[in-house]
């Protein structure tokens, strides 16, 4: 696959942009590919709908926007409703399963859920939800390599918080790997 479009949607404050940042950094710096992140910006983003667009490619990226995401990551119900019509017919949907109930999914789309908020709470900090989703995305889709994603997490979070964030990444990653290795648990 030479080019993958990723759309990440959620609520402001869930770390949507940071998760896009980590995926982009993993791809462009540590995997040596090309990546472009377009971030939702401005006060409108706070506490309401928020999204990031990441394009990962083997060749330089021209048009920087995501039009038909091959990977759609949603962390809120509104994000699901808003972005699911755009998803590629054979795309992958990754969703927070306590917050989003996938309905009316196109037939070719494969969907994978994770209780990321609860997992984050059990790790001690709800704010690593987005890092769990990054791990989950890496585990399920391998759009970036595990080693690169881990390194990108370390690069992207404040000093002192790397350990917990890596634990969060690991938890999401393993959860995702188990789903992919096992048959898909969701049949929408």
């Amino acid at each position: 696959m030479s080019k993958t479009e990723i759309r990440i949607g959620g609520l402001g404050g869930q770390g949507v942009i940071l998760s896009g940042m980590i995926l982009g950094r993993a791809a462009s710096i540590h995997d040596g590919r090309h990546a472009t992140l377009i971030q939702a910006f401005g006060p409108e983003a706070r506490g309401s709908a928020c999204s990031a667009q990441v394009t990962v490619s083997d060749v330089p990226i021209g048009y920087p926007y995501v039009r038909q995401p091959g990977i759609l990551i949603v962390m809120s119900r509104d994000a699901y409703t808003q972005f699911v019509p755009q998803i590629h017919p054979e795309g992958i949907l990754l969703y927070e399963q306590d917050l989003v109930q996938p309905e009316n999914l196109p037939a070719g789309v494969r969907a994978f859920g994770i209780p990321a908020t609860r997992m984050a709470e059990q790790l001690g900090r709800r704010l690593v939800l987005n890092i769990i989703m990054v791990g989950f995305c890496t585990g399920v889709t391998q759009v970036v390599s595990e080693a690169s994603a881990r390194q990108a997490v370390i690069d992207s979070v404040p000093r002192g918080t790397q350990k917990l964030n890596l634990d969060a990444f690991q938890a999401g990653f393993e959860f995702g790997r188990n789903l992919v290795v096992a048959p898909s648990p969701v049949a929408p």
Binding site: L18, F41, R46, L127, S156, P158, R159, N165
Partner: peptide, 22 residues
């Protein structure tokens, strides 16, 4: 009080004008 370290993390996930430079 080491909460400032976590406050930095919190400000990163705010999705508001994030200063995410490397």
């Amino acid at each position: 009080d080491v909460s400032h370290i976590w406050e930095r993390m919190e400000s990163m996930v705010l999705d508001f004008n994030p200063t995410l430079g490397g």
